[in-house]
Amino acid sequence: MDFARKTVFIPKKTGKIDRYGPLRIFLIRRLKTYIKIENSQIYLFNLQVTKDGETQGLTTNGIGWIIRETAVK
């Protein structure tokens, strides 16, 4: 995420082109607050902590589930 340029980098793993998406100012403010509170080191959104104590990032399936559950509510 580039807060100065108000963009987020979205890499494509399947050989397609990488993209940049816009970030709105209210989202930037919320993300900065979240980062300060959570103090994430590797992943922005942590899914869980393994038995070894390592954090795992949120997967695309996890994001899809959150969107579906939010849409239902």
Score class of each variant (00 low, 15 high):
Gly53Trp: 11
Ser40Trp: 00
Thr55Ile: 15
Arg30Gly: 12
Leu58Phe: 12
Thr14Asp: 10
Arg19Trp: 02
Thr70Val: 10
Ile25Phe: 06
Ile28Ser: 04
Lys32Val: 07
Glu54Trp: 09
Gly57Ser: 09
Thr60Phe: 10
Thr7Gly: 02
Tyr43His: 14
Gln48Asp: 11
Asp2Met: 05
Arg29Val: 02
Lys6Cys: 12
Ile42Ala: 10
Lys32Thr: 06
Ile35Glu: 09
Lys36Val: 05
Tyr34Val: 09
Lys32Cys: 05
Thr7Trp: 00
Val8Arg: 00
Lys16Cys: 01
Phe3Ile: 08
Gln41Glu: 15
Thr60Trp: 10
Asp52Tyr: 08
Thr33Pro: 00
Lys32Phe: 02
Ile66Arg: 08
Ile63Val: 14
Ile42Arg: 06
Arg68Ser: 12
Asn46Ile: 15
Val72Lys: 15
Lys6Trp: 06
Asp18Ser: 00
Thr59Tyr: 13
Thr33Asn: 09
Lys32Ile: 06
Gly53Met: 06
Ile25Pro: 05
Tyr20Arg: 14
Arg24Phe: 10
Ile10Tyr: 03
Thr59Val: 04
Lys32Pro: 02
Ala4Ile: 00
Arg68Asn: 12
Pro22Thr: 09
Lys36Cys: 13
Gly62Leu: 08
Thr59Leu: 06
Pro22Lys: 14
Leu44Ala: 02
Gln41Phe: 03
Leu23Tyr: 10
Asn61Pro: 00
Val72Asp: 13
Ile28Cys: 06
Glu69Thr: 13
Ile17Asn: 04
Pro22Glu: 08
Phe3Ser: 06
Tyr34Pro: 05
Lys73Ile: 15
Leu31Cys: 03
Arg19Thr: 03
Gly53Val: 10
Lys36His: 14
Val72Asn: 15
Phe9Trp: 08
Ile67Leu: 15
Leu31Thr: 03
Glu38Gln: 10
Thr7Ser: 07
Thr60Gln: 11
Asp18Thr: 00
Val49Glu: 15
Phe26His: 04
Ile37Phe: 10
Glu69Asp: 10
Thr14Val: 03
Ile28Leu: 02
Thr14Asn: 07
Met1Thr: 02
Thr59Gln: 07
Ile67Met: 12
Tyr43Asp: 04
Leu31Glu: 04
Ile28Val: 13
Gly15Val: 04
Asn39Tyr: 00
Gln56Lys: 15
Tyr43Pro: 01
Tyr43Glu: 01
Gly53Cys: 03
Lys16Pro: 00
Leu23Ala: 06
Asp52Ser: 14
Asp52Ala: 11
Thr59Pro: 09
Ala4Arg: 02
Ile66Phe: 07
